[in-house]
Write a protein that binds this DNA or RNA. Structure first.
Length: 683
DNA sequence: GCAAGGTC
């Protein structure tokens, strides 16, 4: 009988706890223990209609705008196990193990969002545990950190006083309540006559779509404004120009002439040719960049044409086989242990990914990349190094993903090995025109490529020509820059760097990107062509209808997260923060309604035949011939199923993540009676 | 059918 039941977030964490404490059960520091693990969140909030009293079910099941905003006091906030296959089994295992324990130790990921506390308390509440609960706070999953944390347990038995739980819990309710905006947007667009599945809105999705939309508009509205500027050009081609700060419009207007003739007039004021004067040459160096996160891997490999969905799935399979490190890390650095492992495996990895081992010379950890604390460490090759790249196929369900797996491994290998390369050394040359010192030029001369020979995003810079001796005044043509096309790399960067908190976690950004760009998803709102994004028709509707709303503003997340900090510090009551979503819905509802008119401007009038006529098949119901839809949702009836249904039998078939049972019956819609498949859950 | 957050 174990005294402590140690609950970790996932299997890999349970394995690391087991290593640190000396087994999946045993004795540590005078206490007997047993380790169990969750699998991320095991519970999720029930459907809105299942959280309210009987007479309110219709209202909260409805997508009709007249039923919103919701009154959040109507909600019970009851949760149920998630739909994934083995969740109930995991829950019952944890419950069973808890029956022998004197206390539960929350040992989930220790992250400031409080998500680890939330998913632990969801489980603790679900199994009906009312005993002692402790929290340990590990910085990373090394034995040293885990044992240290396990010696410093905090009693958190009262969950209403666990600030981390409170903040994450209110976050989850706020986000859940934000689904009203999807219902509103979808209903308004449908009521205007458009055929759409769902017009998604949320504080992450809407912001992503809005960013792409605004960039698309900026490209569409771009008007090239050429300007003419006097510069000097030396006999080696280097250009000398006057330095002006970008925001110094007054000075820019003096130098950049809209009229070519003005520039030509200015040109005559200068003598030409003139002399080049070298001002200085400074030695500089740059160290390897930080390692990758999943969003960066996604953005870089999308250039090769892989979808976000494929990268997510293939990466996960490589992780499960031990070939790559944990995918959904927030870390951009690694620990010394992780660094040592990389050094040990470096030659093998280099041979696999095609890096010259002689370049691996910097075996001392650089302090900006190797820190004392990092939970999973940045994305990099795993502990298990394959004997060949083809061996990665063993990890894959589908061998056609092998090329993608190899590209992921090579990218991770090269970026990780780059931190074992020398500094990149270069010289910065500055020169000016002797007669007109305001005209300057500056360029870099690479001296030693160092780590950039191991990994460089794009081509290595070429050595520039030497400085010339003489220069001539010329009229150079320039223009206001055309906005670049929106790409995944651009979007990820904007999301991550917004405000104090960023918008969405790296892992959620990548999985949301995968959802939005997946043609099979209900939320297929973005097209992806080698990493270049564009809005689908529904995506455009979603973005257009959300203009001017709070949900599409990054400030919504910023204020929510600021409020979460206050909830975590007990400066703000959770319900106070939750009520801010009511204000968002109240503000956004009329904006969405008004914006429907803009949808017509951008995608045109709805076509007349909106809802495709469904294909019918013949059945028999109570001895009489009838017709039903050939498909139920995404399921097409087989001949056998139709036979069974016609015989009046109940059939069961696999559907999405579960099974559906039901039989034929009568249905009524708008006064019209017909025969249809009635699933059991409708009764 | 809906959110965003975990996870396989």
């Amino acid at each position: 009988m174990a005294e402590y039941l140690i609950l970790t977030e996932k299997k890999s964490a349970a394995d690391n706890f087991s290593k640190a404490l000396g087994g999946s059960s045993g004795n540590f520091d005078g206490h007997s223990y047993q380790i169990v693990h969750a699998q991320g969140h095991l519970m999720e909030l029930s459907e809105p209609k299942d959280q309210v009293a009987g007479d309110l079910k219709e209202r909260y099941g409805s997508w009709d705008p007249e039923n919103m905003p919701w009154n959040l006091n109507d909600f019970s906030w009851v949760k149920e196990p998630t739909k994934a296959g083995n969740i109930r089994k995991i829950l019952s295992q944890i419950k069973k193990a808890s029956q022998n324990a004197q206390a539960i130790v929350i040992a989930t990921d220790n992250d400031p969002s409080g998500e680890g506390e939330l998913l632990a308390w969801e489980i603790i509440n679900e199994i009906g545990w009312h005993g002692k609960v402790y929290r340990e706070y590990h910085d990373d999953e090394t034995p040293k950190s885990i044992t240290k944390a396990m010696r410093n347990l905090k009693d958190v038995s009262d969950q209403t006083k666990d600030g981390d739980y409170l903040k994450a819990n209110v976050r989850s309710r706020w986000d859940f309540a934000s689904m009203q905006l999807t219902r509103l947007a979808t209903s308004y667009v449908r009521n205007a006559g458009y055929y759409v599945k769902v017009v998604n809105q949320g504080r992450l999705k809407s912001v992503m779509l809005s960013m792409v939309y605004k960039r698309e508009q900026a490209i569409k509205n771009y008007v090239k404004k050429p300007f003419y500027e006097v510069k000097f050009q030396d006999d080696q081609g280097h250009l000398y120009a006057r330095k002006v700060a970008k925001d110094n419009e007054e000075r820019l207007a003096q130098i950049r002439h809209a009229d070519k003739a003005q520039a030509e007039a200015e040109l005559t004021q200068y003598q030409s040719p003139v002399h080049v004067k070298k001002l200085k040459m400074v030695n500089k160096k740059s160290t390897p960049k930080t390692l990758l996160d999943l969003a960066k891997v996604d953005a870089l490999l999308s250039k090769k044409g892989y979808s976000s969905n494929k990268i997510k799935n293939v990466y996960q399979q490589l992780y499960e086989a031990g070939y790559v490190s944990y995918p959904r890390t927030e870390d951009k650095v690694i620990t010394s242990e992780q660094f040592n492992e990389l050094v040990q495996n470096s030659k093998e990895i280099a041979l696999l990914v095609g890096v010259n081992t002689q370049l691996l010379t910097h075996l001392e950890p650089r302090k900006e990349l190797v820190k004392d604390s990092a939970t999973h460490g940045a994305n990099r090759p795993g502990s298990k190094v394959p004997a060949s790249l083809d061996e990665l196929g063993k990890a894959l369900k589908n061998q056609s993903d092998l090329e993608c797996a190899k590209d992921i491994y090579c990218l991770l290998g090269k970026t990780a090995l780059a931190i074992l390369g020398d500094d990149y050394l270069y010289r910065v040359v500055t020169a000016s025109i002797e007669e007109y010192p305001a005209f300057v030029t500056q360029y870099n001369v690479p001296a030693n490529f160092g780590w950039r020979q191991i990994y460089n995003d794009g081509e290595l810079p070429k050595a520039p020509k030497p400085l010339g001796t003489q220069a001539k005044a010329i009229v150079a043509e320039g223009a206001n820059p055309k906005p670049a096309k929106p790409t995944k790399a651009w979007l990820f960067k904007r999301l991550a760097s917004y405000g104090k908190y960023g918008i969405g976690t790296g892992a959620t950004q990548q999985s949301t990107m995968a959802e939005l760009t997946n043609a099979k998803s209900n939320a297929h709102l973005l097209n992806d062509k080698k990493g270049v994004l564009s809005l689908t028709d529904t995506g455009l509707m979603s973005a257009v209808i959300a203009q001017g709303t709070l949900i599409a503003s990054p400030k919504a997340t910023e204020q929510l997260f600021q409020g979460m900090d206050d909830v975590g510090n007990f400066k703000l009551a959770p319900d106070q923060l939750l009520s801010t979503i009511n204000k968002v819905v109240a503000h956004d509802k009329p904006v969405l309604q008004k914006n429907v008119a803009l949808v017509e401007q951008s995608v045109g009038k709805p076509q007349k035949k909106q809802y495709p006529k469904r294909e019918k098949v013949d059945v028999t119901y109570q001895g009489k011939p009838a017709q039903i839809n050939a498909k139920w949702g995404e399921h097409t009836w087989t001949a056998d199923e139709l036979k069974e249904l016609s015989a009046g039998n109940t059939i069961t078939f696999d559907y999405k993540k579960g099974q559906i049972s039901g039989q034929l019956g009568e249905k009524e819609y708008k006064g019209h009676k017909f025969i249809a498949f009635i699933p059991d859950f409708d009764n």
